[in-house]
Design a protein around this nucleic acid. Structure first.
Lengths: 262, 262
DNA sequence: CGCTCCATTGATCCAGCTCAAGCTAAGTGG
DNA sequence: CCACTTAGCTTGAGCTGGATCAATGGAGCG
């Protein structure tokens, strides 16, 4: 998906691969701007990397925090399960996401891969110590978490106050805008979404049957097509309108506008 | 509500009142453990404090970030509005909450006071610079945001996958456990909740009529009573069961278990 | 080839919404 | 002190969006 981005970052730098996770977190520019002391500290840490196959549970809700992951490539999702087996997908994550970090001692969500995923990882306590030594990293972490919180808030609003059709259109808009850098601008686009309708349902609080019906209706209307994991947005404007966005939310999209002018 | 806690913190310290916001953020213990350099930096910053009356909008969704607030006492809530006027309350906040912080340039939610609120505040850019100078503060911020994200995730799961009755019971359990230090333990308790049924509905994605009916049913069952802003939990066990919790979620409750052993 | 997972379509049902109306209580101004 | 207003609570009746149940049809895969 956005492996392209990873490769760029990797090829643009001459850092040893043990710092890949770090780079994903703070970005190449911030890394180059680091003061020498901090840079040395951060570079001294070796991040393990590993590939996890698709459809695997990386950790479960309730597990003790042992590891912090930075997703380098591939798709995964975070979820919570209820006693009766119902599942809520909290969000879909891909390149750059920080996973497994949190204030309390246990993970409050599970993580499952969708496609094969490359991850960088660090023992939790080591990561913890590291952010105490590097303000730049600490700020990046705060920002990552804040981004994710913002996404959670948008998602909550959809679940609580939007109809099924709006939720689905909204999710598509979100995924397109997060996975492509230019998808937002174009009238139409084509994009591989490795997720099932069941996952869409679990993310949006809908049954898979209903998701299917509504995707069908959106297709009938000529707004999108979605089959065999290939999504085509045929009419961006109509889709955004279906999502009930447009006016609002345009506010919070951009990345880190505030550089830290220390 | 938990003014008690504030007062404790204030009286236990001999710090000038300009640091109140800071103390709420990082806690008294962490403050005393600070290394001298960092402590001096943090103490050099004067936080303004101010009282905002109940029922006021502090900032709107979409407003530029200008100020970071730390809520010292009182109740408020964060919300998002849709084009058609529907409102989603993201969460209720009270003493200790960090508000208005985020990675993007504009606030993604609005903030409205419920009761009169005392807040400590700092210009956004100044706060930004400050966390760049103090890893301890940066970590606190990351943890605050992470706590809030965790709450958002729980809330999302309720909205997406739980029935109205479970959502309402769950919200009550959450509020009781967040506002009291011992309410969790007792079989029954009494507590002033300054929120309306309309707010409960907007938080849980329900109509106020439905909230009313279900509160009535929970009262009929002898689980709670709620009138004139006074909530009584009569049967804690039954309430928790109604919420469909118990097994899960016990995991993520405690505060900061990981001290930074640098 | 058979298994399993997912998508699709139809039929039925119900939780929660909407609309409507009356009630209570706290202001508020004369 | 009372009339009037306003905001929130309560209750009833009917409707509907989306769930549930059931059955069928691919499609990858061991």
């Amino acid at each position: 998906m956005n492996n392209a981005r990873d490769c760029q970052i990797l090829s643009a730098s001459n850092v040893n691969s043990g710092s890949t996770g770090l780079l994903q977190l703070i970005g190449l520019k911030a890394f180059n701007d680091l003061d020498p002391v901090e840079k040395e500290r951060l570079e001294g840490v070796h991040w393990a990397t590993k590939v996890i196959h698709g459809g695997r549970t990386v950790f479960d809700q309730g597990d003790d925090r042992q590891t912090v992951y930075v997703l380098l490539s591939g798709w995964a999702f975070r979820y919570q399960l209820l006693a009766d087996g119902k599942r809520q997908i909290l969000d879909f994550v891909f390149g750059g996401s920080l996973l497994g970090f949190g204030a309390c001692g246990a993970n409050c969500y599970g993580l499952e891969t969708v496609t094969d995923c490359k991850v960088a990882l660090l023992p939790y306590m080591q990561f913890r110590r590291l952010i105490g030594l590097s303000p730049t990293l600490a700020i990046s972490v705060a920002e990552r978490v804040s981004d994710s919180e913002t996404r959670a808030h948008e998602h909550m609003t959809s679940l609580g106050r939007r109809a099924a059709r709006e939720r689905i259109a909204g999710l598509i808009v979100e995924l397109v805008s997060r996975t492509t850098s230019d998808g937002l601008a174009k009238h139409s686009c084509r994009l591989e979404l490795p997720i099932t309708q069941i996952m869409i349902g679990d993310a949006l609080g809908l049954s898979n049957e209903h998701v299917c019906r509504i995707l069908g209706k959106l297709a009938d209307a000529g707004t999108i097509s979605f089959s065999r994991n290939v999504l085509q947005v045929l009419d961006k404007g109509a889709l955004v309108q279906e999502a009930g966005l447009e006016a609002e939310d345009s506010a919070c999209r951009a990345g880190n506008e505030f550089a830290v002018a220390a």
